[in-house]
Each structure stands twice: as C-alpha cells, then as structure tokens.
Nucleic acid binder design. Structure first.
Length: 815
RNA sequence: GCCGAAGUGGUGGAAUUGGCAGACGCGCUGGACUCAAAAUCCAGUGUUGGUAACAACGUGCGGGUUCAAGUCCCGCCUUCGGCACCA
C-alpha cells in the first residue's frame, strides 16, 4: 500500500490551484457573490499559531463549501500592520518597524498559502502601505469636515511605562492592556472621533444583525443607554446655574446636597474664598490619582464642601454643594444631585460627612436609618407628588419643571467619544497642520498621503517621536504659507482596521477610497469570523465608520457585517491560555510536518466545538490520520476491483448504505453551514464506516459503491482540500473537485421501510420493536400488548393511558 | 455588586428544541491476523448489584410541572467571560 505523501501532494495541488487561478473572484458574476471574511492578522514575527489555523483554516472550509454550492466567494486576506508590538520590538532590537513588519508579512503570506486556503491575494490590503493609509487619512479629513473628528483638551489615560496615551478600551482594571502598569491621568490635547453621535443607531440596529447574542449584549452594555432627566439648579446668591442628570427624578424632594466632579469648570466659579484652599488641595490630589485607585469600590469616598449652595427648583430648599471624585466628569453633566435616602453612594458619603438624609420613597420601615432604599415605591413628603408611584412621579415632576424651563427628559449614554491620537511612531500620521496664525489646518487632499518618515528616533520619552523629526514636522501652512508644524501624533491602529473590509474589493483604486457603486454591490460582508475579544472595540468602531461614511454619501448600507461568528480559543494542554511564559504553547508546525495541513485542519474541525474551543490534545490527531488512511484505502481498493467485477442488486444493503450516504449529505451541509464542523466530520466518519461494511459484501454493486465514494470525497473536500483533490484524481475524475456541484440529499433515501419504536411503561424504556413505517397507533398498541415481556410487566396493573408518538415511541401508563 | 454564557461517562464532545441520554472519536478490555511487534480488522465498554436474564441509579445541587425533562419553571452552587462609583 502506498502511504499518502502529503508534502508532495499538498505542494502539487497548491501549485495547480495557483496556476489555474481557480480561486480568483469572478467580478462579472456579482449576483452570486458571497463575501466571506476573517479578521485580518497582525504580522508578528513567529509562524502561524494554532489560533490562526483554527480561524483561517476552518473558515476556509466553510468558504470552500459555499463555493461548491455555487457561490462566487470573495475571500480576501491582508495585514493589520501598524501598531505597538513592532515598535516595541524595534526599541529592544534596533530593527526598524518597517523592516521587521514587511519581513513578517512575507513569512506569513507564505505560511497562509501553505495552509491551502482559497484566499485571493490579488485583493490583499496592508494597512502600513502608503497606498492604504493615504485613504485612512482621507477618511480622517472627511470626518473632520463633517464635525465627527475634533480636538479636545482632556484628562487622558497615560501609561507611564509605554509613555503613551491609551484609549479607555485599552485600560483593563486601571492597568495598561499591554504592559499591565498602573495607568495615571494626564492633560493633553487629543483628537477624538464622535462615535457618541451614533450611539442610538448603533443600539437600534443590533436586533437586526445575525450576530451572537452575547456579542450584541456586550455592545449593548458598552453603549449603555440610560433614560432620565436633566434638571437645572440655581446657585444661591448668584446668576449661575447648572444641570444634573438623574434617572430618579422621583427622589427630587430627597436631595440634601449636590456634588460636582473635581474637574468640573464650575468648581472655581462657585467656591467661596474661605474654602478655596481646601478645594484646590482636593482637586490636586484627585488629579494625581491613578484610575486603579479612583475606580476602587472598596475605597472610602472623599470630598470637600465648596461653601456654595444650590436651590432645589421644586421646593426652594438651600442645599450645600460639594466636590467629590466619586462623580465622573465625563458622564452626564459632571454634576449630580445627591439623595442619600435612596442611593447607596450618596448614603455612604452622607454618613461620612454628617449630611442630612431624607426619605421620600416609602420603603421597609425597619431598615430605615441603616440603609438607603433604592427600589421604586410610593412617594412621601414630596408635596403635591406624595402618594404617587415612582414611575408616575418621575414624569410628573419633570413635566412640572419643564413648565418652568427647569428640566426635561433626557437620554444619556455610557459610550464615550473615541480618543484616536497616539504619541507613537509606527502608525498612520494624522493629516493635520498647526499654524500659529490659522490654527488647525487640514492637509489638502492633493497632498495625501502624509508619509511616515523612515529615520525617526522613536525611543519613548513621553514626546511624540514624529515631533522630533524636523524633516517631518516643519511644513508651510497650506492656508497662509507661513511656517507651521504637522500634528506629531499617529492614529490608533483601530482606525486602520475600522474600514479595511471596505477597501478589499477595490484595493487598487488610486483615485478614490473605493468606488461607491462597486462596494455597494460587494458589501456588506456576508460572513465575518474572528475572536470574541473584539466584541466591544473593533466591531463597534467598524459599525461606526460604516454609518459615518454612509451619512457622508460614500456608501449605501447600514451595517458592515451581516453575520458574525466567533471562533473559540484553543488553550494549552494544561487548560490555560497559551503563552510563552507558561511554556504551554503548541506549535502547529510540529504537527504539519508530521501529518500535513489537511489532517491538522480536519483535527481542528473534529476535535472541538468551533465556538467553544478548548484545551489542545494530541490523541485526537492520530485518529484523524487513521481516518484519512481509511479513505485512501477504500479508494485504492475500489480502483483495483473496478475492472473485474460485475454488477448485482442487493436491495437491503444498498438501502442501508444509501441511508447513511444521504444522512451524511444532509448532516454535513446543515452542520457546516452553522460552523458545527465537529458533527460534520462525525457524519463523514459514519459514511466511511458504512462504506467499509458495504464493501465487504461479495455481490456489491460497484456503481453504488462508486457513487457513494464520489459523494464522500465531495463532502470531504472543504475540510481536507489537497487530499480530496488527490483522491478525486485517483478515482479518474477531471480536475477540479472544487468545480463540482455540492451533493444534494435525496429525501426518499432517508425514509426507511421499517422503524424502531420504543415501548415505555410509565416513561421507562422496556422494549423496542421493529415496525413498518407509519404504523397506526392501534396496530402498534396491539403489537405491544402481544409482547410477552410487556404483558408480564403490566400483568395485574390497569392501563390508564397510552401516549403515542408516530414512528418513535409508545408510552403505556399503568397503575 | 450588575449583565451574560456554561456545567453531560475515564476523556474530546453529540442529542432534529419536551420523546431511546452518551452520536462520532479517544482511551480501555477481549479476540482475529503475525514467529513477534507495528499496522489493520472484529466485538465490548455510563455507574452499581447479579454467573445471567434483569434491576436500580444516572446530564452541577435541591424542589416543581409533565405520560415523558440534559431540554421548561422556581431556588441555590461552581467555573469562565463582560461591565464596574455611569447618578
């Protein structure tokens, strides 16, 4: 027996596929287009890891199936090539990020090709190419023109170790996502994208898209819509007034003090001179605090009195104004009304500083004075509103305030605008110029791209590396022609990845970002596959970009990704996340060398529930090698016997084989569609087992055998593409198996003459009977009661009820 | 604290949505082939008791609904994700 030489075979078919351009996307056949996309990867130095294979290999299987089902599959690939790792690597080794990145890309391209995937490399996109980031910059300019990009001086997250500003999303539990160092605050002028403008729409479209419910929930929480009211308070003895946001307008009569965030601009305006020193001191302390300290919920609340008083608009009460850092400056108005009787945080604060506590909602009397009552209930001590329910009072109180122009219903979102400036080198330069005379001046479109200079000192010292490059920095103002400076920052890499899927179909376009008519045909993406870790960031930003570009008139669809799948994570054999430091990494290369790409892909398909993932395990892969050997043997045996055997009819055996054959067609088609690859492979194994059984019969029908082997190979092809192509050739069929039609199951083959019916007594299985299909209840009952075993059990008991499920089960209830 | 998801043999994992729990594999046991081994093939394999037929138990725990529950309802436990002073 010949042993399948996978290296030779894989090489042979990869070359042939490339030479015959079999996976090239057909631009003419747009009606059948199907855009299948995996999240592109970061070009890191090492070879592909198991996660890449799991994501790309198996999504490729899905794409191959779709192709065989007649779709014109658009399956591009590219690289998310800007970012910190290359820069950090450069700082460590002295190798320039550009050099290491392009070298890594080359390695990864070759590896991806050796996987045997259907990627059409003609459409490749690399985000660090000037041809690409020219358009990233262009989009920035458009966002700026439309008021969706703006500059703001704001306290930002500062990582002292990376020496850079971080987005909220890059701060995990108060620490830097990358280096785990504690993040502190710093005031800088930064560029923001106004994603909050789209908060409501980003929320509204979630129900319509075919995404995992969990992911939608995460986005839902992240956007954090909250319905409440904005209420205006006057300041006692002054013309000044300020607004607060509250979800509990019903507790307005219980307000006993007000709190401003220490960063609030109002603080200095209202603070009385005798309190100024204390207030300044407090502001300074809270400014210095790191997020990890400030966010800690165990920490005792602190604050200081400003000396000023506000007037409660509903009852004219004079209430003290404090500042405290438990109030966030960038949510709502940065000021809150404190109701210690009905809010835990306010209660804690009031207890500490001996502020009055008023109860205005009837709650549990016994718990009073010890705990705040935070539920809804009936109002008390609230003048005209006493006796109303919280729900009613909320509206009625705001209605009353509205008449006095002191309040209105208001929706707030937890979502913050997206901070995109990075004080880093290896990224897309921000196409803006700062002129002393003209202020902020956008780089004219004709001057794009603003190229990233090669020779730059990028060791981090807190200053943007680009600011240190004279050649880059110094520029003449496009408006007045005077000397000016370029913006020294680069864009967050999430900006690059927020629109790459829009560039793929038109990646060579030099005159526009993409052709509108064309991408309206090509998009949205039909199937998007990638890690769940991007649920809140990339996937939200990409949605925002799509909507913004739509409103600016560059495309016509609302959502970028119609259907989304997250692959699970393959863990180390010890059940932990793979990491070099834990020494539990699995290198695919070891297995590829021993078994080849197909067996490795098949094992990934079979060994895990795709969306779950799980710990790596060696044992399974040998079983897959065995399985593919079994297929090879049956093909060989068939070819050697083909010549000298006749044809006979063995109806029952044929029927049995046919049943398994069509069960497999149906099962693989339906399960692989849902990314349930493990059960798809299980159906193929069943089919192979049935083939062996049938093959062992003396008078087998060779035509039936051949037809079944043919279907087996077709069903196997997406999962083991090189192997299936090779077997296809050995069967004497024409190239290529991937140009064949996907098999259809025959419903008749799934209908058997007889079925097994389970006989239960009181819900417990007592016997099984083989009966003709669709046998009526009466007949089954007669048979069951004619069964001595059943008779014995029910002997002296009374039959109360008989439940019958056709072709499945009969339950006899006895007493 | 809040919001999600999950918990099934020794093991990876199935189960058409209320109808035979454990498909398909791995592992294990026995057998065939072999001088022998590997490979391959065949049979068995949830647990407990029994020589056996069979019986009882069994999908994290405790209740419930139902002729029938891994699946539905109520109350817990554990693990993993997400958010976290958002007023």
């Amino acid at each position: 027996m010949t042993v399948y030489d996978y290296k030779l075979i894989e090489n042979k078919w990869q070359k042939k596929w490339e030479a015959t351009e079999i996976y090239k996307f057909d631009k003419e056949d747009i009606e059948n287009k199907l855009y299948c996309l995996e999240m592109f990867s970061y070009p890191s130095g090492a070879n592909l890891h198991v996660g890449h294979w799991y994501n790309y290999g198996l999504t490729d299987s899905w794409a191959r199936m779709k192709r065989m089902q007649g779709y014109n599959v658009f399956h591009p690939q590219g690289f998310d090539a800007f970012g910190l790792p290359a820069e950090n690597y450069a700082i460590k080794t002295g190798i320039h990020p550009k050099d290491s990145t392009y070298k890594n890309i080359e390695t990864m391209e070759n590896q991806l090709k050796s996987m045997g995937a259907t990627f059409d490399w003609d459409y490749e996109v690399v985000t660090c190419n000037p041809e690409y980031y020219k358009w990233t910059q262009w989009i920035f300019l458009k966002l700026y023109e439309n008021g969706l990009a703006y500059r703001k001086n704001a306290p930002v997250n500062w990582c002292p170790s990376c020496k850079t500003v971080l987005a909220n999303e890059q701060v995990i539990d108060g620490s830097c996502e990358r280096c785990k160092d504690v993040v502190t605050k710093r005031d800088l002028t930064q560029w923001f994208f106004k994603i909050t403008e789209y908060a409501q729409e980003l929320l509204d479209f979630l129900p319509q898209i075919d995404w995992p419910e969990k992911t939608k929930k995460i986005q839902n929480n992240w956007i954090g819509r909250s319905e409440g009211a904005e209420i205006e308070f006057n300041i006692d003895g002054s013309d000044l007034c300020f607004k607060v946001f509250t979800t509990r307008a019903d507790t307005l009569y219980g307000v006993t003090y007000m709190v401003l965030a220490p960063e609030s601009e109002l603080v200095d305006k209202i603070t009385c001179s005798e309190y100024q020193e204390k207030v300044n001191e407090y502001k300074e302390i809270s400014q210095k605090q790191s997020d990890i300290e400030r966010m800690s919920t165990v920490r005792e609340k602190t604050g200081v009195f400003t000396g000023a008083y506000a007037i409660n608009p509903v009852n004219g009460e004079k209430i003290p104004i404090w500042i405290a850092d438990y109030v966030l400056a960038n949510y709502g108005t940065g000021c809150v009304m404190a109701v210690p009787g009905h809010d835990e945080r306010d209660f804690e604060f009031a207890m500490k500083y001996n502020l009055p506590i008023k109860r205005v909602i009837k709650g549990d009397a016994s718990a009073e004075d010890q705990l705040p009552f935070t539920e809804y209930g009936q109002l008390v001590d609230s003048m005209d509103f006493s006796g109303q329910s919280s729900d009613d009072a909320k509206n009625n109180i705001v209605e009353k305030l509205k008449q006095q122009k002191k309040g209105e219903l208001k929706v707030n979102f937890r979502l913050r605008d997206w901070l995109v400036s990075r004080q880093r080198y290896w990224g897309t330069p921000i196409p803006m110029i700062h002129c002393e005379k003209c202020g902020i001046v956008p780089v004219p479109e004709k001057d794009l791209p603003v190229e990233l200079p090669y020779n730059v000192e990028f060791t981090p010292d807190g200053e943007s590396p680009l600011a240190k490059s004279e050649e880059f920095s110094n520029v003449t103002c496009p408006k007045c022609g005077e000397k000016a400076k370029r913006d020294p920052d680069t864009l967050d890499t999430f900006v690059c990845s927020s629109w790459y899927f829009l560039r793929y179909p038109d990646n060579r376009n030099e005159s526009e970002v993409f052709n509108k008519e064309w991408i309206n045909k090509m998009l949205p993406v039909d199937k998007y596959v990638g890690g769940a870790e991007h649920a809140a960031l990339h996937l939200l930003y990409a949605r925002f970009f799509t909507k913004a570009l739509r409103d600016m008139g560059y495309l016509d669809f609302d959502e970028p990704f119609l259907s989304l799948v997250h692959q699970g994570t393959i863990l180390g054999p010890d059940g932990n996340r793979m990491s070099k430091s834990k020494g539990n990494t699995i290198s695919p290369d070891t297995y590829i060398n021993e078994y080849g790409s197909d067996v490795f892909r098949l094992y990934l398909a079979f060994g895990f529930a795709y969306t779950e993932g799980g710990p790596w395990n060696d044992d399974g892969i040998k079983a897959i090698a065995k399985f593919s050997n079994r297929i090879e043997r049956i093909v060989e045996k068939f070819m050697s016997e083909k010549v000298n055997s006749g044809k006979s009819t063995l109806e029952n055996e044929e029927k049995e084989l046919n049943f398994v054959r069509h069960t497999a067609i149906k099962g693989v088609t339906e399960d692989a569609e849902k990314f349930q690859f493990n059960t798809s492979v299980a159906r193929l194994m069943e089919l192979v087992n049935a083939l062996y059984k049938y093959d062992a019969i003396e008078n087998k029908n060779l035509q039936v055998l051949e037809g079944t082997i043919k279907d087996l190979l077709l069903l196997l092809a997406p999962f083991a593409p090189h192997f299936a192509e090779e077997m296809w050739e050995q069967m004497g069929y024409n190239y290529s198996i991937f140009n064949q039609k996907w098999p259809q199951f025959d419903p008749n083959a799934l209908v058997l003459d007889t079925v097994e019916i389970v006989i239960q007594i009181n819900g417990k299985v007592k016997d099984k009977m083989e009966v003709p299909l669709d046998l009526a209840k009466n007949d089954v009952e007669k048979m069951a009661l004619g069964n001595t075993r059943i008779l014995q059990i029910i002997e002296d008991k009374k039959v109360v009820k008989v439940i019958f499920v056709p072709n499945k089960l009969m339950n006899i209830v006895v007493k």
